[in-house]
């Protein structure tokens, strides 16, 4: 029975390793999450989200505090971004949300700039101040045609 029980052990280790690999791929790499209740969900509406995609990071002063959950169009046909943030985050009601790019051509993320009010945002509320993505094409166009920077003349 010695060899049989040691074989059982090896099979057990094998199954555990395989399940651990699946769990790592699902939860860590695949971003599968069970139970969203523990997170603070906030919304922000933008005119242009550029290349922002679900699961993009949300940062404050460059520190990751959450991620973009989903992006939909709202009734006014503007982009409504739902974000899941750490629960213990206390953001004042005049916090601004901006879409920024990491480096010149890097990935886009949402940067939050905390305000000064004493009241804090509760789950399900929206940011009042937002800043759309910087569109590199528009920026280049403005420079080339001189329209955006040199005024109306």
């Amino acid at each position: 029975m010695q060899s049989s029980s040691s074989r059982d052990l090896v099979v057990g280790v094998f199954v555990l390793l395989g399940l651990a690999a699946i769990a790592y791929l699902s939860v860590q790499v695949g971003g599968l999450s069970l139970g969203r209740e523990g997170e603070l969900q906030l919304f922000a509406t933008f005119d242009d989200i550029g290349g922002l995609s679900p699961r993009a990071p949300v940062r404050i002063s460059g520190v990751r505090v959450g991620q973009v959950e989903s992006i939909d169009l709202d009734a006014d046909l503007r982009a409504r971004v739902a974000m899941n943030l750490a629960t213990d985050l206390e953001l004042s009601v005049d916090t601004a949300a901006a879409i920024r790019t990491a480096g010149l051509l890097g990935d886009q993320f949402v940067a939050l700039e905390p305000g000064a009010e004493d009241e804090v945002l509760e789950a399900g509320e929206s940011f009042s101040f937002t800043e759309s993505a910087t569109n590199l094409d528009k920026l280049i166009g403005a420079v080339v045609h001189g329209s955006g920077l040199a005024g109306d003349d």
Binding site: S26, G30, G31, L32, S53, R55, P57, D107
Partner: peptide, 18 residues
């Protein structure tokens, strides 16, 4: 790691793989 984690979606990729 972050590019890997941002690109891979559970339903689209991992579930398909399993």
């Amino acid at each position: 790691i972050s590019h890997l984690e941002n690109a891979v979606d559970f339903r689209e990729s991992v579930l398909q793989s399993i």
